[in-house]
Design a binder for these strands. Structure first.
Length: 205
DNA sequence: CGGCCGATCCACT
DNA sequence: GTGGATCGGCCGA
């Protein structure tokens, strides 16, 4: 079932980031559905987190969407060429977000292959935050899109990842964040663990 | 304004 | 392991 606003509007953003592992992220544009199992995420804890774009209560046109109530997409341009997809969490006024760093593609593979220009069907299609957006057709112009609508959404399909299979560690590329760089706000399940789980790599909504 | 740089990826060595 | 691509956001002048 599709996650609703109450899932996103909770306070504990690292807990939400961890819970998103094993959920399914889908997009539907022009009637074409693509999706995958979320396998890696990172929590960004708002104004107190030096790694967050909202650190120091920086309200700008770009970060404004993070200040809205949870359940929206925050998608921004990185390195001039990559759109990075985040889930806005917490209540209005608290700019928390979760970066989706990797998915295991399970739906619309042929579309994903044409978007990425790759002809194979392995994890390599979407094992990085920029690749996730390319695979799913996400673009920074879509920032602010509701995650409870019919274009971008996340589903709980009952896939249970054994807690011991979810690893935590420091976030990637945030060395500038001082002591916040050491926080264990990155969560991931390794694809070889995911592969062993029965009956889950099938199906679209 | 001007300049620096990034929550990255890929090709190449 | 290294460097180039490529441009919006942010800050300081």
């Amino acid at each position: 079932m599709k996650l609703d606003k109450s899932f996103y509007r909770r306070e504990n953003v690292p807990a939400i980031a961890r819970e998103l592992i094993g959920k399914l992220l889908y997009t539907c544009f022009n009637g074409v559905v693509t999706g995958g199992i979320i396998t890696e995420s990172e929590a960004y804890e708002g104004i107190t987190d030096r790694a967050s774009h909202a650190y120091g209560d920086r309200r700008t046109a770009r970060t404004e969407v993070m200040y809205k109530a949870g359940g929206l997409a925050y998608i921004y341009l990185c390195y001039g060429m990559h759109s990075l997809f985040n889930v806005v969490t917490n209540k209005e006024g608290i700019p928390h977000a979760v970066l989706i760093r990797a998915i295991w593609p399970v739906g619309g593979i042929s579309t994903i292959q044409s978007r990425t220009g790759k002809q194979h069907s392995s994890y390599d299609l979407s094992n990085g935050p920029g690749k996730v957006s390319r695979a799913l057709g996400l673009h920074y112009s879509q920032t602010g899109t509701s995650l409870t609508g019919d274009e971008i959404w996340i589903e709980d399909r009952g896939l249970l990842i054994p807690p011991d299979d979810i690893e935590a560690g420091p976030r990637i590329g945030v060395d500038y964040a001082g002591e916040d760089a050491a926080l264990s706000y990155r969560f991931l399940v390794r694809p070889e663990r995911l592969k062993l789980l029965p009956g889950m790599v099938e199906g679209l909504p």
